[in-house]
Simulated scan of single mutants.
Amino acid sequence: MDQEQQVINRILMESRTIAVVGMSSKHDRPSHEVAQYMQAHGYRILPVNPSYAGTRILGEQCYATLAEAEAAMKKAGGRIDVVDCFRKPEEVGTAVDEAIAVGARAVWMQLGVVDEEASARAAKAGLDVVMDKCIKIEHMQLR
């Protein structure tokens, strides 16, 4: 097993809470489908999208920012393990910087999302990083 696969397996086995940045309330969007699948497999989902802040998606409160989501998790005695980024490649750097700031354990950039500079910043800060892979597909393969 290569190093990237070891990181993926560790993230999926050790994580419990996934903040989904760019999550949509629309059922036909990939972010919603992926989050719904992960939730059905025991992960806590925290929707993060300023367009839906204050509403509920998949039964969970949606937050405008990762900082708001992390504050709510701390208040409840938890933390964000994974920041799953459904953002355009040119916008993902901001989400990565926020993930570093809130002390997430890992950053996951979905299929088609690659930002080498943001990845390097996250790795330097001690976060595990996965790029250009779908967390749902990887979870299905692990099972």
Rank of each mutant, 00 (worst) to 15 (best):
M1Y: 01
Q3P: 00
E4H: 04
Q5E: 14
I8Y: 06
R10M: 08
I11S: 03
I11W: 03
L12M: 10
E14R: 08
S15K: 03
R16H: 11
T17A: 12
I18T: 05
V20M: 03
V21T: 02
G22I: 01
M23T: 06
M23S: 07
S24N: 07
H27G: 13
H27W: 09
D28G: 10
H32L: 11
A35F: 06
Q36S: 15
Y37N: 15
Q39M: 12
Q39W: 02
A40P: 02
R44W: 01
R44V: 13
R44Q: 14
I45N: 06
P47C: 10
N49Q: 09
N49T: 08
P50G: 10
S51E: 15
Y52K: 13
A53N: 07
A53W: 09
A53M: 11
E60R: 14
E60L: 08
Q61E: 15
C62D: 09
Y63W: 12
Y63A: 10
T65G: 06
L66D: 03
L66A: 07
A67C: 13
E70L: 05
A71V: 10
A71R: 15
A72G: 13
M73E: 15
I80N: 02
I80C: 06
D81P: 05
V83W: 02
C85Y: 00
F86E: 03
R87A: 02
R87G: 02
R87T: 01
E90Y: 07
E91H: 10
E91S: 11
T94V: 14
A95Y: 00
V96T: 05
D97E: 14
D97N: 13
A99V: 02
I100T: 02
A101S: 10
V102T: 05
G103K: 05
W108D: 03
Q110F: 04
G112L: 04
V114M: 05
E117T: 00
A118Q: 06
A118R: 04
S119K: 15
A120N: 01
A122C: 09
A123E: 12
A125Q: 02
A125L: 06
V129W: 01
V129E: 00
V130Q: 07
D132S: 07
K133M: 14
C134Y: 07
I135H: 03
I135S: 14
K136Y: 03
K136A: 11
I137F: 10
Q141I: 12
Q141A: 14
Q141W: 13
R143I: 15
